[in-house]
Design a protein around this nucleic acid. Structure first.
Length: 1266
RNA sequence: GGGUGGUUAGCUCAGCUGGUAGAGCAUUCGCUUGACGUGCGAAAGGUCACAAGUUCGAAUCUUGUACCACCCACCA
């Protein structure tokens, strides 16, 4: 029975949600009692939707929710239809967005990205996302999304990361991913390349420069006009037209011809008038006025501005008005006004190419001038080279013709700056014959570089200002239009203006992928709804250029690319952007050969395989230790390891790709691996054989061993194994050490081997004998060895807490004692002592050397930092003088020094020292120096951040060790574009759980907002088919598409049709609506009456009316339940055919049949809005309002007075039929409504008398059939 | 410049395999006892933007026009 009173969504939803979650109904693997009792369902058809992952760092908004509602509604529908349904949820790391948000978060704590260091930043950002996504996850559950949350994935889950990087590797192999330089959007603040979609536009008013660059002067006519008119007080002119060209508006000025027909070469002279009354102009008249200014368009159109002598208003104001009208008619930025009084023609109008630009600072990067090929003005110049005057002297520049240039805009002549304008880059590409060298004049920080001459070092903005002055003084400036309106591309996240720059990046060659993606949609394997969006999709596939997939961020997938040596991009003397790897400059793609390694395993640590011996002795003891230290080490799994045969080994090893790996084998594993690699010809980087003889205990076997050493295909091994290491113990009484030595030396002159004299047991040699040796063996780079760094002992200044950098003070007694004590701690295997020349260090060196007896070398580079004016100050004095610096405790980086040495200089000095040391040949020097220098060692050789190195200050005589080795391969710092991973989302998510891909790919539907069709859906269509095909080259087209249907829902707008957004404050909080009206009501509001691709407005009244509908269902259900209560059991066991129905009943039955058919059809064809409408109408206005009202009297058993009624046989039968029918109808309605109104329908369903064949939840009930 | 969608009751929107216009909200009038006032019964309100065409018949199909959104590209 249902409780009395109106429907209370909150309590019901909580209860039902708990019921669903507890029983794991959302899992596709869930089997209802109904299913368990019937036949097996192994062949159930699947229905899967991969849910678009919201950003992991934020809350859900209405947009997410409306998507979930549609996805869930489909999921619930097909689940009831008996399909195995998977709704797969996820969260997206949302690269740059999250990075910027999290950086702001850090700022609040007074931290920065750089101070944390990459690893720590990533870790914290990860935690930040995980924490933030909890909220979203809870919200997803609360709205009743029946997704399998146990499968939920984050784009940075390790398994996903693996797969994403694998995609990069595969595409690199297939040459679909390549490295190249290209003009890209660069955000100088984010220090990252950005895709067009990561940028937006901002309207701006920027000064538009007309400046002269050589010869031609189209303004000569303007001068003529001025000369003709400026001296005249009055001119007469005949008015010709009184309305605007479109015949509508009357302007406060008119257009006409000069009395007498003033002609310039191209035709009639246009005149604008100000200060005349319209009436007069409309009728047409002869007007007398004073020439006042010229409106000049640089494509040789000039208008004379004529003012009414009697006009006493503000002429300049009228002029501005005039300009606005002129401009609104046609965006024609070539227009400007020049008042006669401001017309100093003698100064500006001489020979020259006049160019218009808002970005004069890029002119240093000009490589040509381009004109419209149809532009008669410049015809004679095309193809010729000119020497022109510039701000930095003169330069040669060629004129070319290109269709991108619009003759009517500006001066019809464009400077071509390939390095700083995408359009110009295209022009340059179209004219390969002119061989444009790109000239980059702005660096990656947005500052002018060496090519900008005296402007070097200025920011773009500053440079523009200075150039304006310079152009003015040297007469280059023709005109400055201060009111020019343009749009500036800015960074979507940080709003900083974008600088188009040339840069080396990784790109996806989209051409072949696009072709495929286009075809799959064209042949209809993936359908897009609404139909109209298909065209948008296909057009994108035709127009999109190659896709830059690298971003210079830390948050995301670090590119699985390694360079052989340091790599950097730089700008050459001539302004060309070049890339350098190690010492090699890349001039063409072939130069990358051998310098790039693509793969997400660290190439500096080769793959290590561990081959256990019989009984797995080593694999239980030492192998785990190796694995802990080298996580990429893999222990080979061998069957029957207690009694393995060579076949067992061969079978086990088959699983692994041993090529070029490091192999450590023990005992019987040794012979097995030798046999295996010799047979298969597998090249091996390093082979370590541990105790190879130990399997031969007895004498005859030992003899066989020596024999075997000879038989072990040594000659073959030599060709396969680069480095062979043998470790064995020697206390086998049957074989002498010399025998073995001799044997090895004879056979394997290239092998390195270790002898262990004290191994106490054959089969398990003392376990601690190996590791130290082993680690050394495994270090790939051991070229430079280790250094040990010692801080000097205490001085009086130390004791007093005074700054002393270069102040040369001797050790005090404590200091000397400290040095004495330290002697004990020092190893004896140093080869030299290198010390700072300052006394405290050298003294320390002398003391410790009493025992070591080594050569001591002084090196100036090791001196402590010069603290300048701080030298000798105590900390207290320093605090008084520089309270702010002191409170930050950051004297290391921003000292309040007036003199002294900057921290950068110290860093440079230490780097120089490290370099010197590497070249010196010393393998294990002891270095005595100062705390400030040791901090730099920590940063340079231990990768600590400045903050960390300060917290980690060394004490007197503290010894620290560092490795001087540089890794040979250095990983690319960049991360991949977020869309590169989300573009593979269906594939990735289904690859994580074994079997999912086979079962659920392709998914049925991709449901998302139409606004991200071009961002996301297109990219999924590019990447998923590719990967699916890679997985199975025999896959058919049907099997490679990521989804069969794309359903694009509309965007949610507010009541006034404005897109909801936080900044506008017009957003409705979905969770507030849910609280107030119930989740079901809100869900229904997203669907009812809406259609695909159409934006829809959501407002409270809609939700409240749907709440009313829910309440109606609730009340009608109460009525039904109350009236069937007495015969519930009988009803569910009755056969419909035995009942006697009235006319009303038959109509109701027909109605229901129709409704079932209609609803099913509508859902099948994705017309959810219509289905919801019809259900609403039918339930409320037919079932409740008409049918229930009609049969009420048949159901009552008592009249108003309480006397029994409906007692005759016939009446009882009729009542029973009615009871049966209202129960049947209600059941049917609940099922049909369940996908739309999940909570309420479940609540009522659970209260209904349960039929045998039905499931324990409406979620798995049978979809009604008519 | 290229493209897409929209124009239907006061408001927000459905309806478009062609057959005398629909819903919610708002408005007006009337309803107090048996599921429900978050309700019930009724009413009023539209030459379905405009024009032409196809058709026995057009909101629905075709063409064109206007206006309003939006998307893509470009803006030297």
């Amino acid at each position: 029975m249902l409780p009395k009173g109106p429907y209370q969504p909150q309590t019901t939803e909580e209860e039902i949600l708990d019921f669903w979650l507890k029983n794991k109904f959302y899992s596709p693997e869930y089997k209802s009692q109904k299913e368990l009792s019937t036949t097996n369902d192994e062949n159930r058809e699947t229905f899967s939707i991969v849910l678009p992952p919201p950003n992991a760092n934020g809350n859900l908004h209405l947009g997410h929710m409306s998507g979930y509602v549609y996805q869930d509604l489909m999921g619930r529908y097909y689940r009831m239809k008996g399909k195995k349904v998977l709704l797969l949820p996820g969260k997206d790391h949302a690269g740059i967005l999250t990075e910027v948000v999290f950086e702001k978060e850090l700022e609040k704590e007074g931290l920065s990205k750089k101070s944390l260091g990459r690893e720590e930043f990533y870790k914290r950002c990860y935690d930040f996302c995980i924490k933030n996504s909890e909220n979203a996850r809870r919200q997803e559950r609360n709205i009743g999304l029946s997704a399998d949350f146990d499968r939920e994935l984050f784009t940075l889950d390790p398994k996903i990361v693996d797969e994403v990087l694998k995609a990069f590797e595969l595409m690199y192999e297939d040459k679909l991913v390549y490295r190249d330089k290209r003009i890209i959007n660069w955000c100088p603040r984010c220090q990252s390349a950005l895709a067009d979609i990561d940028t937006e536009f901002k309207d701006s008013v920027s000064p538009f420069f007309y400046f002269k660059y050589g010869f031609l002067d189209p303004e000569i006519d303007a001068i003529k006009i001025k000369n003709d008119f400026s001296q005249m007080d009055e001119v007469k002119w005949i008015f010709e037209r009184s309305s605007s060209p479109d015949g509508k508006e009357i302007y406060p000025f008119a257009v006409g011809t000069i009395d007498g027909g003033y002609q310039i070469e191209t035709g009639e002279m246009i005149v604008h008038c100000i200060g005349y009354d319209n009436e007069k102009l409309i009728k047409g008249d002869v007007i007398v006025g004073k020439p006042y200014a010229i409106m000049m368009r640089l494509n040789k159109k000039f208008s004379l501005i004529l003012s009414n002598p009697k006009f006493d208003g503000d002429l300049d104001k009228e002029l501005t008005k005039l300009w606005k009208v002129a401009e609104s008619k046609k965006r024609d930025a070539g227009i400007h006004f020049i008042k006669f009084e401001d017309f100093p023609e003698d100064k500006y109008y001489t020979n020259g190419f006049v160019l218009g630009t808002v970005r004069p600072e890029t002119k240093f990067g000009d490589t040509a001038l381009a004109v419209d090929p149809d532009d008669g003005r410049y015809k004679d110049f095309v193809g010729k080279e000119f020497e022109v005057k510039t701000l930095l002297g003169t330069s040669k520049i060629k004129v070319i013709a290109d269709n991108a240039v619009d003759e009517s805009f500006g001066t019809g002549m464009v400077k071509v700056t390939p390095a700083h304008s995408p359009e110009d880059w295209d022009i340059a590409k179209r004219h390969p014959d002119e061989a444009f060298p790109e000239k980059q004049v702005i660096d990656f920080n947005g500052k002018m570089n060496h090519l900008a001459g005296k402007y070097e070092g200025l920011s773009v903005k500053e440079a523009r200002k200075v150039m304006l002055q310079d152009m003015k003084t040297n007469g280059m400036l023709v005109y400055l239009d201060e009111n020019y309106e343009n749009r500036i591309r800015i960074c979507e996240r940080c709003k900083h203006p974008i600088e188009p720059l040339i840069s080396y990046q990784w790109f996806v060659d989209t051409e072949p992928l696009k072709k495929e993606a286009k075809r799959l949609v064209e042949v209809g394997l993936t359908e897009i709804m609404p139909e109209g969006k298909k065209k948008t999709y296909l057009q994108w596939m035709e127009s999109q250029e190659d896709w830059c997939i690298t971003r210079q961020l830390w948050w995301g997938y670090r590119v699985p690319v390694w360079y052989k040596g340091e790599h950097s991009q730089y700008i050459t003397e001539t302004g060309e952007v070049k890339e350098k790897i190690g010492d090699k400059v890349i001039n063409n793609p072939e130069d990358y050969e051998g310098l790039i390694y693509v793969g997400h395993d660290n190439p500096n640590v080769p793959q290590i395989y561990l081959i256990p011996g019989k009984h797995g002795y080593m694999s239980r003891k030492i192998f785990p230790e190796i694995v802990e230290k080298y996580p990429n080490a893999v222990t080979a799994e061998i069957e029957n390891i207690d009694e393995p045969s060579q076949e067992d080994y061969a079978n086990g090893l088959k699983e692994y790709d041993l090529k070029n790996s490091v192999i450590i084998a023990h005992s019987m594993g040794c012979s097995a691996i030798i046999n295996y690699i010799s047979e298969k010809n597998i090249p091996i980087e390093k082979l370590v054989l541990i105790a190879p003889k130990l399997i031969f205990k007895e004498k005859d076997k030992a003899k066989r061993y020596t024999k075997m050493l000879e038989d072990l295909r040594f000659d073959k091994l030599k060709t396969l194994v680069k480095e062979l290491v043998i470790i064995y113990s020697d206390n086998d009484e049957h074989v002498t050490l010399e025998d073995i030595n001799e044997s090895i030396k004879k056979q394997l002159p290239y092998a390195e081997y270790a002898l262990q004299k004290d191994a106490d047991h054959f089969a398990t040699p003392k376990l601690d004998i190996f590791p130290q040796y082993l680690w050394k063996l495994l270090e790939n780079q051991n070229k430079y060895g280790e250094i040990s760094v010692l801080r000097h002992g205490e001085t009086e200044y130390n004791k007093l807490g005074k700054f002393h950098g270069i102040t040369d003070i001797e050790l005090n007694q404590i200091g000397e004692q400290q040095a004495q004590n330290a002697i004990e701690k020092l190893d004896s295997n140093y080869d030299v002592i290198i010390t700072s020349p300052l006394k405290r260090a050298h003294q320390t060196a002398n003391i410790v050397n009493e025992k070591l007896g080594l050569e001591i070398i002084e090196n100036e580079l090791l001196k402590e930092r010069n603290f300048g004016n701080l030298e000798g100050l105590t900390w207290e004095e320093f605090t008084d003088k520089h309270p702010e610096e002191a409170s930050k405790n950051n004297i290391d980086f921003q000292p309040a020094l007036e003199k002294g040495e900057s921290i950068e200089a110290v860093e440079k000095r230490v780097e120089e020292f490290i370099d010197w040391l590497r070249k010196s040949g010393y393998k294990n020097p002891l270095i005595v120096t100062h705390a400030g220098i040791i901090r730099i060692f920590e940063r340079k050789l231990n990768n600590l951040t400045p903050e960390q190195s300060r917290e980690n200050d060394p004490k007197n005589l503290e010894l620290r060790n560092y490795s001087l080795n540089k890794p040979e391969w250095i990983q690319d710092e960049d991360v991949l574009d977020t869309w590169f991973s989300s573009g593979q989302w269906p594939y990735l998510t289904l690859m994580v759980k074994e079997g999912d891909f086979e079962e659920f790919y392709p998914t049925q539907v991709m449901e998302t907002g139409w606004d991200i069709l071009l961002f996301w859906v297109t990219r999924m269509m590019l990447l998923n088919p590719y990967r699916a095909k890679k997985l199975n080259t025999d896959a058919t087209d049907e099997q490679i598409v990521p989804f069969k249907d794309v359903y694009l829902h509309g965007l949610v707008l507010d009541k006034n049709g404005v897109k909801m957004s936080k900044s506008k404050g017009n957003g409705i909080d979905p969770f507030e609506m849910m609280q107030k009206y119930g989740t079901d009501a809100l869900r229904y509001s997203f669907v009812k009456g809406n259609s695909a691709g159409q934006n829809y407005r959501l407002y409270e009244e809609k939700v409240s009316s749907n709440r009313n509908f829910c309440n109606k269902i609730w009340n009608a259900s109460k009525f039904v339940l109350f009236n069937i209560e007495d015969s519930a059991d009988k009803l569910i066991n009755s056969d419909r055919s035995e009942l006697e129905f009235t006319q009303d009943d038959t109509e109701m039955l027909e109605h229901i049949d129709n409704l079932i058919e209609e609803t099913t059809r509508r859902l099948d064809e994705f017309k959810f809005g219509i289905a919801a409408d019809e259900l609403y109408e039918s339930f409320w206005h037919y079932f409740a309002d008409i049918y229930l009202e009609k049969i009420k009297t048949r159901l009552y058993t008592k009249d108003r007075e309480g006397n029994p009624i409906n007692t005759s046989d016939e009446e009882i039968k009729s009542r029973f039929a009615a009871q049966w029918l209202i129960l049947y109808s209600l059941e049917t309605y609940l099922k049909l409504l369940h996908p739309f109104i999940p909570f309420l329908t479940e609540k009522i369903w659970l209260s209904l008398p349960k039929r045998e064949e039905e499931a324990e939840t409406i979620m798995y009930s049978n979809w009604p059939e008519s």
